[in-house]
Design a protein around this nucleic acid. Sequence first.
DNA 1: CCGTATTTGTTCGTATGTATT
DNA 2: CAATACATACGAACAAATACG
Lengths: 270, 270
Amino acid sequence: MPDTPKWRQIAENLRQKIESGELGRDGQVLPSELELQDTYNASRNTIRDAVKWLVTRGLVVTRPGQGTFVVTMIDPFVTQLTDDGAGPGAESTAYASEVAAQSRKPETSVPRVEIKKADGLVAVELRLAEGTPVVSRHQQRLIDGTPWSLQTTWYSMDLVTQGAVRLIQAEEISPGVVNYIEQVLGIKQAGWRDRFQVRPPDRRETEFFHLPDDGRIAVIEIVRTGYDESGQPFRVTVTTYPADRNQFVMLAGDVPDESVLRGAAQGGTG
Amino acid sequence: MPDTPKWRQIAENLRQKIESGELGRDGQVLPSELELQDTYNASRNTIRDAVKWLVTRGLVVTRPGQGTFVVTMIDPFVTQLTDDGAGPGAESTAYASEVAAQSRKPETSVPRVEIKKADGLVAVELRLAEGTPVVSRHQQRLIDGTPWSLQTTWYSMDLVTQGAVRLIQAEEISPGVVNYIEQVLGIKQAGWRDRFQVRPPDRRETEFFHLPDDGRIAVIEIVRTGYDESGQPFRVTVTTYPADRNQFVMLAGDVPDESVLRGAAQGGTG
DNA sequence: CCGTATTTGTTCGTATGTATT
DNA sequence: CAATACATACGAACAAATACG
């Protein structure tokens, strides 16, 4: 008997059976804890330790009163982060079109608009002093009824006082906010920078995305700062996506126009 | 007493104390399990359930014989994924220069070169039939002695038979492989596509990155496919990074030339 | 609708092993 | 070597959610 704990051996054995398909068929997949006790000659707590490890790895889920089920992989949604050549600002309308291209039903909540004081990240990215008033527009986005992303964009209040009054109205700005700002103020988005990181979800994200509250599923946070032609930042957007159902694609230079929206192809790293 | 379990209440209480700094000072931070039993009037197993939740969330680590410690955030390393204007192929040499720019010491292992048959992902990306011979070049990269990324690149064997013989030599190709292929064969990389996803680490990654074996820390996998000027793919690179110590930056259009390499600025989403 | 059986969740207790100081 | 602290493993009891007759 090696020095690997018994619960770990049981977990590995179950994992192998799951991945080989031996334990992954119809509705209820894993034997009950009571049965596993007999199978592995272990106490119920040891069995539960093994199952918990599988849960943490995302291989199974447990449901009280029902049993333990193998997890069916969510069909990932692919987001293209680079401009697709449809002109500046195309990225802000990209959401609906990309979703439609994948034959899925997008939904976007009515924006929640707030006027706040710039703090930390927002102040730094927009190069404003802390406390400067800013407009924040927050939206929730769903695909096929599944929560898919949370997005908040901050603009300096200066844009509003200069005439972009629709920024503080709680309604969709249809051709895209970036287009709207260009039309009203002549401020054109010349480029943007995305900062990409993976972190544990906060409470709001855990709730909205229906993530397990043990924080084992991370969220992907993308901070996009948009700059005008003079190099001045005029908006910063923070979007979070649950890491278990999202992929991203970036293009550089000339890439053949094949579908960049395809399912995940794993494997092949051996 | 609400219906939230006792272990969860204890965990939330500890979390709050940690985040407020009440329990996050010198060396050993959390009281021992024995002390916590008295503090919260709970059994040791209940205390352990609470602490385990904190461990899963990455807030603390436990060390046998020592105690439970709050986790100090690793200083993240920032990778720029877009071309920085240094010409085609610049991205393949970007690693060392970016690391140097952050005043850190990069190390790259000698490439492990293998000749294999194209399977799954590689066959699809390179548009080869499964079983076609390919060259794989694998490298491990460290920063300041910390494992930072695992990278494998596949090339069709045709490139070797056409003259790019250094591809099958187990040594660094100094100006960059993309540059080498262009010089020897005239195949120029006109563009690339990055596919970005977050997934649990496999065994090799868990070992190399020293990740906890419960899989709670994900890896970021970037699949970069490079295309020549005729739109033909000629290389595919899979790089994995541990999600807890890496950030990425992508630029589009005109972005002012400020430092894109800065520490993470959290907060500000309230 | 009700009651029962099944299944997972929570909580306690106890004992022993292993790593560190 | 001894004390401390976390890790593993067992057993037991009750609660809560679900399925089913």
